[in-house]
Amino acid sequence: MIAQSFNYEAPDTLAKAIALLQKYGDEAKILSGGHSLIPMMKLRFATPECLIDINDIPGLSHIKEEGGVLKIGALTREAEVEHSDLLKKHFPIFGDVTKLIADPQVRNRGTLGGNLAHGDAANDHPAVMLALNATVIATGPDGERAIPIDEFFFGFYMTALQPDEILTEIQIPIPEGNTGNAYHKLERKVGDYATAGVAVQLTLDQSGNCTAAGIGLTNVNPTPLRAARSEQALLGKPITEASIAEAAQYASEDCSPSSDLRGSEEYKRAMVAVLVKRMIHKALERAGVK
């Protein structure tokens, strides 16, 4: 398995990288972790004229808290996300999700930005970002722009990124109050893409009413999916077994999985319901409710 020949550029500034994108247009591909792109190139499914390696650009790899917002640089490796103490504090969900992405070696290379920018509904971070209400920062010739996660995923391998833009940062609001979050996916074996995956984040007020709910679904829809009706079913009231069942039901109805080697459409819908239920319970537990 050997890729077709290409030009290789490793710019050391964002400006140079963007200039290269402008020069090559559709014929260029950004190389960050490379663990989705290089296999596709080896299979010759992807044959870019130019690879723009952004790994040498400083300032794209960080995990920090600023003004109530958590900022993760796009080049931050999955392994760094997995082991970050700052993330563990607010977002144990990142421990859940990274452990289930591929394997340790791949997580040493794979980046959070790449996982999102690839636009693959089978990737795990999109659902997590939907649940956490993240904002994607894209940098282009005219500087930065903020894209709400709900406006980021367009279609099969399609995102809101323009051909001359680079995903540079992910911003996540740090929730207040009693908040818990959790992610799980069913997989045929460790490191597999999800049969179905569910991310949940819940915030409760003093009296136990649910004030914020985020639920994202992995690999059960052509694009990463927010389970909006499920969120609504939980909001503004205490969470009960009945509302959990309702949320689970809605998510299984609103997704659109396809039958494949991982299971039938019916199975995947059922698994979405089971996982929504389980992840709500786990998020509640982490919020200190149980």
């Binding site: 045929r188 074996k189 460790v190 490191g191 597999d192 080697l261």
Partner: peptide, 16 residues
């Protein structure tokens, strides 16, 4: 063939 790579031909790891 629907699973002609090690991504889909599921050889067990130390976890399975």
């Amino acid at each position: 063939i629907l699973n002609g790579t090690l991504m889909d031909y599921l050889v067990p790891t130390a976890v399975e």
